[in-house]
Every structure is written in C-alpha cells, then in structure tokens.
C-alpha cells in the first residue's frame, strides 16, 4: 500500500508536529511526548482521552472546547506510555482532578492505570470511564470486556460538556458513565488497512467479502458475508444494535454514521438514509444525527453505526456547543 510518509518510524511524531503547525493557535504539544492539549483550559475538571494512533481524527481531533482538554497518543495501534499520559495530566490538572475517557483495550488500560497510580503519589486525582460500545466484541453478559470504537465521540462530547458545567470529578465521571451505558456501536469492514512500519495488512478479506464486527485494529468480526447492498448491511448492523439495547417507540437517540477510513461521504449518507428510515419506522425519535469519519482505522474501508439513547440529563449535555477543527456542534 502506498502511503504519504517519510521514515515510517516517525509518522506519529510528524503528524503531531503537523497538527501543531496547522492549529497552533489553539493547541500545543506537551514537551517530549506525543500529547496534545488545548492552550487555555478553564479552571475545572480536565478531560483526557487517548490511545494508539491510526484512528485520526480521533484522538487529537476530539481535543477542543466542550470536548477533551488533551489527548495522549501512542504509536500506530499501540497504547501511549504512562510518561505521556502523566505529562498530559500534569499540564491540565488545576486541582479539580482529571477524567480519563478512552476505549477499553488492555494496552490502554494498563498504561492509563499505571499513570493514575503514579499521579496518585503526587496527589493528582484521576478517574476513568472506559468506552465499551462495540456490541460485536463480546456477548452482552460480558459487556465489560467489549472494545471501544466510535462511541468515544459521544462519550467525549458528554464528558466535555459536563466538565464545562463546573461539576465535581465524581459527577462528571458519573454522567460520562451514564452516556457510555447508553451507547452501542457496530461496524462492517470492506477492505483492510496496512500498518506504516510493516506495510502489512492487518487482516485479509476476499475482494467480494465483507465482515461485520471487525475491530478498529483489524480484530476479527462475527459474521462474514458476500458484499451486500448498503440497505442490507445497514439493516444487519441495526439488528445487532437493537438486540442489545432496548429502544421503544418514543425513545430519543443520537446516531452517528462513522466512516472507517477510505469510505466516502457518499456511501456514509446512503447508510444514514437507511438507518434513519429503520429507526423512524419503529417510532424511535432521532434527536440528532451525524455523518463523518471520526474514528478510523488508517485506510480501512467500511462503516460503523453508533446509537446513544438519551434522557433529559444526557440531552442537556449533548446540546452544549463544542468545537474542534474536526468536531463541532452548535448549541441548542
């Protein structure tokens, strides 16, 4: 696979340098580490996200006003080091504590937990909310083992809004956890991505095949089929989600149709069209909808859909304005 890069070992450093070169008015890089933070964090609880690179614009693209205040990123598909997480945390904590919001992967959990332990010695308070929205990654009774995918977007949006409300760390964590408990996602992959350092594809898929439940690092999915129409594959994805979360007539949801890397907006809107139809036919109210490629897997082709069931509290925080160069919501 052809890639635009220099030395493959430097892709992450050079990406961060490029991000700062581009958006340096609002952001800065944390010294000696691949951490990106906002320049003017208000004096309140801080929200930090992070994980491996290769999912851009996540995670740095979710750093902004009313979103995360910083992101600690690692190499491609590899968790950030505790040092990076610690540096980002120290830059952002103003004594109110820090909430870590990130996808549930063992490498990320090990590194963030170790950072949290070490920060505890310095009296910096942290709490963690793990995003585990991927219904394909474990059975419902083992939901705590599920991986996090595009649900990160909604979780970070809610966390950032709650923090901006000057709530305590415990309150911000509780609201973010409530959001996560109400988020479900599933993806379908059409073609794999290749890792810059090895040039190798993360999985194999025949030219005429697709795989449901494929993870965002190429983790194997749950159902492989011949290529289906947009309407058919959307229906299958919605069925998986509706099997997992109770949605009744009159319930309100936010939906996100998320591209996995190289799938075009044209295709994503075709999915959104069908998703909207299915939910409306069931009397489910689409409070807000979004179509974009936020949580990608390098150049993987495919799409994921995410549903967040709302209540009045989640709606209140979802409605707050938010801004980053890659995610923006007008308040309402």
């Amino acid at each position: 696979m052809k890639k635009v890069m220099n030395n493959p070992e430097n892709v992450v450093n050079e990406m961060v340098e490029g991000f700062i070169a581009t958006f340096g008015n609002g952001y800065k890089k944390v010294l000696n580490s691949n951490g990106v933070i906002v320049k003017n964090k208000p004096d309140r609880v801080a929200i930090i996200t992070g994980g491996g690179s290769g999912h851009e614009p996540l995670f740095i693209g979710m750093v902004g006003e009313g979103l995360a205040d910083g992101a600690a990123i690692g190499n491609v598909f590899s968790a950030p080091t505790p040092d990076t997480i610690i540096e980002v945390t120290k830059e952002l904590d103003s004594g109110h504590g820090v909430l870590y919001v990130y996808g549930n992967y063992s490498g990320d959990v090990l590194n963030f937990d170790m950072a949290a332990e070490m920060l505890d010695f310095e009296n910096i308070k942290t709490k963690t909310v793990l995003v585990n929205d991927d219904v394909a990654s474990a059975a419902k009774e083992n939901a705590k083992d599920r991986r996090g995918i595009a649900g990160d977007i909604f979780a970070i949006k809610i966390a950032g809004a709650a923090a901006n409300d000057n709530l305590s760390l415990e309150q911000v964590a509780a609201i973010t956890q409530k959001a996560v408990d109400n988020i479900r996602s599933i993806g379908v992959a059409l073609s794999p991505s290749s890792i810059p350092s090895t040039g190798k594809y993360t999985f194999e898929l025949a030219e005429d095949e697709i795989e449901f439940g494929m993870g965002i690092h190429g983790e194997p999915g749950i159902q492989k089929t011949k290529l289906l129409s947009a309407d058919e594959l959307t229906q299958i994805m919605v069925d998986y989600i509706l099997k997992d979360i109770e949605l009744e007539k009159g319930d309100e949801v936010c939906i996100l149709v998320n591209g996995l890397g190289s799938t075009t907006l044209m295709e994503l809107f075709i999915v959104s069209r069908k998703l909207t139809n299915i939910l409306e036919d069931k009397g489910i109210i689409i409070y807000d909808a979004d179509v974009n490629s936020y949580c990608t897997t390098l150049e993987m082709a495919g799409v994921s859909i995410t549903v967040m069931k709302l209540d009045e509290e989640l709606k209140k925080y979802y409605d707050k304005p938010a801004y980053s160069p890659y995610y923006f919501k007008k308040g309402r």
């Binding site: 491996g52 690692g74 590899s78 968790a79 950030p80 080091t81 505790p82 040092d83 590194n111 170790m114």
Partner: peptide, 11 residues
Amino acid sequence: ISNMGGASGIL
C-alpha cells in the same frame, strides 16, 4: 515502561 507503549511495555 517509559518508552515502549502498548501492553508489553507495562508488563
């Protein structure tokens, strides 16, 4: 721990 990243770095 400081340089590897991933699960292996910690473990």
